[in-house]
Design a protein around this nucleic acid. Structure first.
Lengths: 192, 192
DNA sequence: ACTTGTTTTAGTACCTGGTACTAAAACATA
DNA sequence: TATGTTTTAGTACCAGGTACTAAAACAAGT
């Protein structure tokens, strides 16, 4: 065809440019644009470490979404799903390779703990909340690729002490249980 | 399980809330969150006219992306893929139902024309460019669901007159050819 | 012309995240 | 018990991929 065709190097350069300005393009779109096969585009993207469409869209969407419920200060481990401050909350953790023990697919336990603990702290309506005690129980190993849903609920409130219970599950299966005793610092202490 | 379960009305209300604050949640995530089946979530989304994940991500990403290459004034028909101002450009048009002739799946011809013409105008480096003449040829009908790739190239420039050729294709098949004679208004005329 | 390496394409198996449909089970209400 | 609604299961299919093997096409060197 009359349109200029590119060699590999130039095609890949333009591929990057096109996807930077328009991440909506599918491999099929790009194949048509460059006049090559879909397999060639996929080989290009693999070489250039350019993720697939749904990942690109997530990256764009994430880069711009303001999360009104993101914790100030300490980071929530997992994605916040729901937060009823003073009462209950839910978060979702997707297990990625860097969270797993080397040479295995098992999620490192501290991630489960961190997810539960950060959620427990999040449901408390306080600027500074510190975990005093935690009683936790790991029910079964969690694997790479699984998603952990954590639910936290405030059970008891006594003065500046909170007992928060967290139940974490994969599908219908409970994988982690935790009870957290959390202290809320009073305003005077904070301002000192 | 100890977590509160919802009736349909309440579940749907929360579903909307959850997806508004977090469009990344899949149907499987939501099924787990609400403790129902994936089919139920899909029925809910259908009732609520909530699109699937990839559409939600597109909506979020689109809502925030600044398109540095968007035309000022006149709207480009189709998505801009590449623009070499003064030389060449490419756009991609996805055929949607409202672009088709009633009771058929054929794309209305004026969309092909509009895509080609707007692209031709876009490649010219001018604030005001008006199409004087156009010679176009529709090679075959285009159907709902197909994507039209238009390529424009400036063939001749003479004073303030441009001859732009546009070739539109679906896959490898040419569906439209057009030659546009475009006049660029001089600055004096514009400022009057 | 032959050889070798690179690039591209074809084909296949499989996956995720869906739509859409039929059918049946479970539930709620009268 | 009957009826309507909600939920679930199963199946077929689709879009947009990953990943792999194998072969064709191409380019460069000899």
């Amino acid at each position: 065809m009359a349109w200029q065709s590119y060699n590999k190097t130039e095609r890949q350069k333009r591929l990057v440019e096109y996807l930077e300005s328009n991440p909506f393009l599918t491999d099929e779109d790009l194949a048509q644009i460059f006049g090559v096969s879909v397999q060639t585009i996929r080989l290009d993207r693999m070489e250039l470490k350019i993720p697939e469409l749904i990942e690109r869209l997530k990256n764009v969407a994430k880069g711009t979404m303001s999360r009104p419920r993101t914790l100030s200060g300490g980071e929530l481990v997992g994605e916040l799903v729901d937060l009823d401050v003073g009462s209950r909350g839910i978060s979702l953790l997707t297990v990625t390779p860097e969270m797993t023990l080397s040479k295995t697919q098992f999620l490192r336990g501290h991630y489960l703990f961190a997810q539960a603990n950060s959620l427990a702290v999040a449901v408390i309506d306080a600027e500074v909340a510190l975990t005093g005690l935690a009683r936790v129980s790991f029910k079964r190993p969690v694997l790479y690729g699984e998603k952990v849903l954590a639910r936290a609920i405030i059970k008891i409130k006594k003065g500046n002490k909170y007992m928060v219970k967290v139940t974490s599950q994969v599908k219908d299966e409970i994988v982690f249980l935790g009870k957290f005793l959390i202290f809320v610092a009073s305003e005077e202490v904070v301002s000192q």
